[in-house]
């Protein structure tokens, strides 16, 4: 005898999966709400533009950390994204099927799996140890390295789904290989490539471990890329553990800014990729 009717089973599975889905989404909302509750009170114009005050003194802001995060992320993107895209193009259009291709692909996948702290230790060893002081450049090297596999994978995947009809159509026009790759395949895949680059940017925006070994922190405005530099991530780390009430509340405020940046990037990617689908048909 059946314990449940067919329809009953259907309803049960539906309820279960809906329940599990809600359970999976709760943490995200919980985190966001908690950060808003604790962080909103710290927000003010001065909070965004001022320098931090020394330990024990209330007031001041996180302006240098916002600028520092932006500078380091931008510098990491400037070299990490192009190399990632070039690697993705190679894997999808050139050597992807061959022996070298499979070596490169394995390397990219392994690189994506390396814990972020290792990137930090690596940049520490080759740069910080050499110049004998903490530097923002080393942070940009570590974060840029992290971006390469993410961007390469996204580029390869989005170029591979471009239909072979497009490659054939371009070939039949006598268009040379580099132009077929760049102006046809890469151009059709540009939405996916851009999404990959933005998601990689969002990903490095949250990384803290590599920064502790490289840019470390500073209470002042950035003076040069070869100097230590404040970032939102390290500021949150330092302030949250300080035990000083004003700094703890500023750590919440900085968290709110950081989460907002990452959420905005994710939403932009979602909206942009939805547009791409409606255009494509």
């Amino acid at each position: 005898m059946r314990f449940l009717s067919r329809k009953g089973t259907d309803r049960l599975v539906k309820c279960l999966s809906a329940g599990v889905t809600v359970a999976a989404v709760i943490p995200l909302f919980w985190i966001v709400i908690e950060i808003i509750i604790n962080g909103a009170s710290a927000l003010s114009w001065n909070f965004l533009t001022d320098l931090p005050r020394p330990f024990g003194e209330t007031g001041g802001g996180i302006g240098n950390a916002i600028l520092g995060s932006f500078l380091i992320n931008a510098l990491a993107s400037v070299w990490g994204i192009p190399i990632g895209i070039a690697t993705g193009i190679y894997l999808s259009e050139y050597g992807g099927g061959g022996r070298t291709g499979s070596v490169v692909r394995t390397a990219v996948e392994s690189l994506a799996g390396v814990p972020s702290i290792i990137y930090g230790v690596f940049a520490f060893t080759i740069i910080v140890m050499t110049v004998r002081h903490y530097t923002a450049l080393a942070a940009a090297v570590a974060l840029g390295l992290m971006m390469i596999p993410l961007v390469a994978k996204a580029t390869e995947e989005s170029m591979k789904v471009v239909s072979s009809e497009m490659r054939e159509a371009a070939m039949a026009l006598g268009i040379p290989k580099w132009a077929r790759t760049e102006k046809v395949v890469l151009s059709i895949a540009r939405g996916g490539v851009l999404s990959g680059a933005l998601l990689a940017f969002a990903r490095i925006s949250g990384e803290t471990a590599p920064l502790l070994f490289t840019a470390l922190f500073s209470l002042y405005w950035p003076t040069g890329l070869d100097q230590p530099m404040a970032t939102l991530q390290v500021l949150i780390y330092n302030y949250a553990l300080s035990g000083f009430g004003d700094w703890v509340s500023k750590a919440w405020g900085a968290s709110l800014i950081l989460v907002a940046i990452v959420l905005v990037i994710n939403i932009v990617v979602r909206v942009a990729s939805r547009q791409k689908f409606t255009e494509g048909t």
Binding site: E165, M166, E168, A169, A170, M171, A172, L173, G174, I175, P176, V184, S187, I188, R190, E279, G280
Partner: peptide
């Protein structure tokens, strides 16, 4: 081969205009 394809054009079974252009 590229010169050949410029002198000998081809039209395919399924229309395949470039969607990015």
């Amino acid at each position: 081969a590229m010169d050949v394809r410029r002198k000998v054009g081809m039209v395919f079974q399924r229309p395949n205009p470039f969607p990015n252009m």
